[in-house]
Design a protein around this nucleic acid. Structure first.
Lengths: 143, 143
DNA sequence: AGATTTATCTTCTCTGAGGAAGAGATTAGG
DNA sequence: CCTAATCTCTTCCTCAGAGAAGATAAATCT
């Protein structure tokens, strides 16, 4: 792809890879009964940390009404918890409850296979890979 | 994570990375007006290649009715094309029309940043990374 | 050829997620 | 202290998307 400076066949490999990651994540979400927005919100919370419903609604692009019910769903499913803001009693803080266990369970088979793949690399190669993971995470951040 | 043999902090880096990839993909899909199922189906088609509506319905878990309308949506949006099966005139083959341009456009900023990250690696390191991309793609395949 | 099976598409219905508007509670400012 | 602004939540409405059941067309089998 000329805009990225990557050769086309490398782009294709990478595109397929991203597609596979998405596919796996969506399938796992579906297996847990999570909608796309729910998963999106969980990812936002996981990436950015606890935040108020207002912030979450800004991040997801939802208005406040649907956001309230989004949080209701996540809370009822045990993925998230509402905590009162000590400094402002109008506010609520939404925080993840540990790591979503069901979701992790659904993602486990793929992670096991990935772990197998990773075991075939040398320590230096693993350093490279994890360096990439860390830096790509920022690259994928919105904004 | 003990089930994978990965150290816990490495798992966390990796989990964040996957979350970021998902987040970016979902945001891009939303920007293109694609629903979660539509995106899922496009990913299936991209990963597996052209297939009949029946196969697609099995992959997505939808019944045949919604699958027809799913394909209608994707076709109308120009992401996909229906071709008659030459060997069986009951069948239709659904195939992607090139690479979804709008989706690619929406993903471009992230890809540019990733390309920047990738430019900092040596050729040997890039070999390692792309080897991983290719093998991880299979690891993420459902089944 | 006739019957059965297979594959896709159509129609109807319904659930669920999202928007709009406003209520209730709390904080900030004059 | 009283008003205005802020934050969350509630209510009502709409609509896209999914299931169920059946229609249509084509292939297969006896």
């Amino acid at each position: 792809m000329s805009t990225t400076g990557m050769p086309d066949d490398a782009t294709e490999v990478y595109r397929r890879y991203l597609g596979a990651v998405m596919l796996n994540g969506l399938a796992a979400a579906r297996a847990c009964g999570l909608g796309a927005t729910d998963l999106y919100a969980l990812n936002v919370l996981g990436a950015t940390g606890p935040m108020t419903p207002g912030e979450l609604s800004a991040r997801t692009g939802l208005t406040t009404g649907p956001t309230t019910r989004l949080i209701d769903r996540l809370e009822q499913a045990g993925y998230v918890r509402r905590v009162p803001d000590p400094g402002d009693r109008r506010k609520v803080i939404v925080e993840q409850v540990g790591t979503p266990a069901e979701l992790d369970e659904a993602l486990a088979p793929a992670r096991r296979k990935v772990a197998e793949v990773l075991q075939s690399y040398s320590p230096e190669q693993l350093d490279t890979l994890f360096d990439y993971f860390a830096r790509a995470t920022d690259a994928f951040r919105p904004g």
